[in-house]
């Protein structure tokens, strides 16, 4: 294949990665923005989404689309419920202290991951795509499902944006983000808002996972990469900024797709992790954020 088509293919793959990443990172960003805590177990909520999707799809039987649609609804809901429960049982009790929350969510990470290992097992299992036509370009064929992933992610992010800007719920969330004390004074039930936010954040990761699981199989260790990439995206996009997160997700997703075509994926990851560390050290407001004060 020539260079041009090669780059085109890499861009398509990058766009799929970016779409899933944007959803997952938006969840992490939402939690950080509103609750001011870093959820290290975010990748495990992603993994749970994929595993539950497999479970729902294999129970549903019939046409693959039935199972997939069911999974798309059920998996994020279950994951959100688990996350809200974790918020209620653990995070609330450490009063969302930033450092203790990180330690506690590291604990959650292992609990979720190892529980899945004990129940679901160490195998990687696929979920069949709801449809799998191919579009033929002059150089290669490409699955229509991957275009669907991109479209679905855009639609979901637009939905999230509408919720945040146009609904009462969005106003409540943004008010809590701006100032917890004032929100309390205005009789906003901050505790419930936090549980909801944590659930919503985890649900977004699960949504991303359900979309990706027909392409990439469900496995108990699959949470590591999304966690790392989401960290990168949220930090580069500016901690807590949803728009910055989406821009950074597209940037990182596309470049990840393109870089890993030309470089070894390990080298790409080394560069990415160092970049994140250095951004935090020298530009903590993110590459796109405005300097604070």
């Amino acid at each position: 294949m020539d260079f041009g088509p090669y780059l085109f293919l890499a861009s398509l793959e990058g766009a799929v990665t970016a779409a899933v990443l944007a959803l997952t990172a938006a969840g992490l960003s939402l939690v950080f923005g509103i609750m001011r805590v870093v959820n290290v177990a975010h990748g495990e909520f992603f993994m749970l989404g994929a595993v539950i999707a497999w479970w729902v799809a294999s129970l549903a039987g019939g046409h693959p689309a039935v199972g997939f649609v069911l999974a798309l609804v059920i998996a994020p809901l279950i994951v959100a419920a688990i996350a809200a429960l974790a918020d209620f049982l653990v995070l609330k009790r450490v009063q969302y202290d930033p450092e203790r929350t990180i330690v506690a969510t590291i604990g959650l990470l292992y609990i979720i991951q190892q529980t899945v290992l004990m129940t679901y097992g160490p195998e990687a299992r696929p979920v069949e795509a709801p449809f799998n036509h191919r579009i033929y370009f002059p150089w290669f064929g490409y699955s229509t499902y991957k275009f669907f992933v991109i479209g679905a992610a855009i639609a979901l992010l637009l939905g999230l944006w509408l919720v945040m800007t146009r609904t009462r719920l969005g106003i409540v969330l943004r008010a809590t983000q701006l100032d917890r004390e004032t929100a309390l004074a205005f009789a906003i039930p901050v505790e419930r808002v936090y549980a909801l936010t944590f659930g919503l954040g985890a649900g977004l990761a699960a949504l991303g996972a359900v979309l990706v699981v027909p392409i990439q199989q469900a496995h108990y260790l699959m949470g590591g990469d999304p966690l790392l990439l989401s960290f990168i995206v949220v930090i580069i996009g500016g901690l807590g900024s949803l728009a910055g997160t989406v821009v950074a997700a597209v940037l990182i997703g596309m470049s990840d797709g393109i870089i890993s075509v030309f470089f070894s994926p390990t080298l790409a990851k080394i560069i990415a992790t160092l970049a994140v560390a250095l951004v935090l050290v020298f530009r903590p407001q993110g590459l796109f954020g405005k300097a604070a004060r």
Binding site: V103, A104, I106, G107, L109, Y110, I111
Partner: peptide, 18 residues
């Protein structure tokens, strides 16, 4: 007993923090 021994480490972290 199990290969999922890190489950214990996770539980210990959560319980200690709490």
């Amino acid at each position: 007993i199990t290969t999922a021994y890190m489950l214990l480490a996770g539980a210990a972290l959560v319980l200690l923090t709490l």
